[in-house]
Each structure stands twice: as C-alpha cells, then as structure tokens.
Amino acid sequence: MPKLTTVLRTLALPVAALIAVAAGGPAQARPEPKAPAQFTALHDVDPTIIQEIRYITPHNFTGAPIDGYRKPMCILTRPAAEALHRVQTGLLSRGYSLKVYDCYRPQRAVDNFVAWAEDLNDQSMKPEFYPHVDKTRLFDDGYIAAKSGHSRGSTMDLTVVRLPATPTRPYRPGETLEPCYGPQDQRFPDNSIDMGTGFDCFDTLAHTLDPRIQGVQLADRLLLKNAMEAQGFTNLPEEWWHYTLNGEPFPDTYFDFPIDRRSLSS
C-alpha cells in the first residue's frame, strides 16, 4: 500500500502533470530534420555570389514570408554549389556576378505555395506577379505544383548582375505594384541585367527563348544560359531564372529541413 505522503503529493499535482505521468512523461518536441552531409551553404563555397533570398521576405507572389525560410541563405548540394562557383569564376572575369533568389526549398515551403494557390481570395500580389493569369489556372498552367525540384537541393533560381553591384532596395509592403513583364525602368527595381521580366513572373514572356524577347534582353538571357550550361546545368524553358544540375545527387528525394545553418552537418 502506498504511503499517505505519496498519495497526497500525487493528488496535489496539476491535471496536466497527471496526464503527462499517465502518458509516460512530458511530451517531447519533435526534432527538426537535418540536411544530409552532401549539403552545404553556398557562401562557404563561394562568398562572392550575391544572395537575395526572396522567400524570406514578403516580396514574392504570396505577399508573405514562406514557411521554412529561417535565414536568408542559399543551401545546395555540394556538387551544385561547386559547379555554381565555376560559373561565377567565369562571370567575374567578364565584370559580372551571379545573384541567387532561391536555392534549396523545403517541402513545407512548397506546401505553403499550394495552400496559397488554393485560396482564391488572396490575390494581393497579382498586379506584379501574375497580371494576365487567372489564379484558378495556376496548377493547370504549371506555375504551382505539389513537388519542386528545388527540394532536391540541386536547383536554383538566379540572375546576373553587372559589377560593381548596387543593392536592390527593400520592398515596402503596400507599395504600388507594377507588372513583372513591364519595361525594366517600370517594374520593381532589381540590380540584375535586363532579362525582360522580373523574377517569378507568371507570364509566357518569362519563357527563356520566347520569340518576343530580342536584342539586349535576349543577349542577357543567353549570357546566363550559356554560362550555366557550360558547367553542367539545364534550364527550365518556362523560367529564364531556373536551373538544375545534371546528374544531381538526390534525383528522387524531396527534403524538408528548414533553411538555417543549424540544419547543416557540422
């Protein structure tokens, strides 16, 4: 028979504590997944590549920071980061630099995109990012999908900047939005060379070799395309900014560790 003092102590416990005792102890927070050892911070491989990570800011097609982006940093598989370093070396010799908008993207961020696309009432960023696209068409037209190559760690969104680079001014939530396909001096300012549209422009003009893109704009797209392909990357034809490393180390694995240096192996 238990001692009287033990019984009294048990009766005095808060209800939450009694539930925890009955369940075998306090609930433990589920640990965040970690990146495999083959992943690295791009800055550790090449600190000269400019990073302007858009999805940690509200300046993206959803109008809000995206789940899983905890630090404004580019994480990639090491082979992708090293190949990007080789691209950068060639561009630096010509007076240019790469600038990455997005690299590895956790699955939770992709899920965030899907949830946003299903909310037809949220169209706050339509005037800039998808002026000509009905939001009900985002899945059918391929702008939003339940899986992204970014989650495999060897895909990145990027552009080219002429050196010396002037930083892009911050986006001010609530400011007047201009169409992403407008003339360079009218759309949201970006220190990129003129690619014909802004980043993440949901419009056919963003197709890398759209025949309406000519002159300087076409030359600028080809500058990026040729430099990336020379180091083993393949462009997604529908997005001039989107490249994936050929022979990527995780072609069938979609990761969900958050973007934070603590996610990387020490």
Rank of each mutant, 00 (worst) to 15 (best):
Y130L: 04
H132C: 10
R162N: 06
D134P: 11
P131D: 00
T168K: 04
S151P: 04
T166Q: 14
H132M: 09
L158Y: 00
D157H: 13
Y143P: 00
V160W: 10
E178C: 02
H132Q: 14
G142V: 01
E118A: 05
D111W: 00
S151A: 14
R162G: 12
D111M: 01
P183I: 04
S124Q: 08
W116S: 10
S151W: 08
P170R: 10
Q123F: 00
I144D: 00
A115Q: 07
T176Q: 04
D122F: 01
P183C: 03
G153E: 01
A146L: 09
R152V: 02
K147A: 08
G174F: 12
G153S: 06
L138G: 04
I144Y: 01
D157S: 12
K135L: 01
P179D: 12
D134I: 09
G142I: 01
E118I: 03
D119G: 12
P164D: 14
G142S: 04
F129Q: 12
R172I: 11
P183E: 13
R137T: 01
V161A: 04
G149F: 08
D157K: 11
P173E: 06
Y143E: 00
V114A: 05
I144S: 01
V114P: 06
K126A: 13
P167R: 10
R162D: 08
C180H: 12
H132V: 05
T166H: 13
L163Q: 14
A117I: 00
G174Y: 14
D119A: 13
N112D: 15
A117G: 07
K147S: 09
R169P: 15
K147M: 10
F139T: 02
A165N: 06
L177T: 11
N112C: 12
N112T: 14
E128T: 09
M156I: 15
A145V: 02
S154Y: 13
S154Q: 11
A165C: 07
D122C: 03
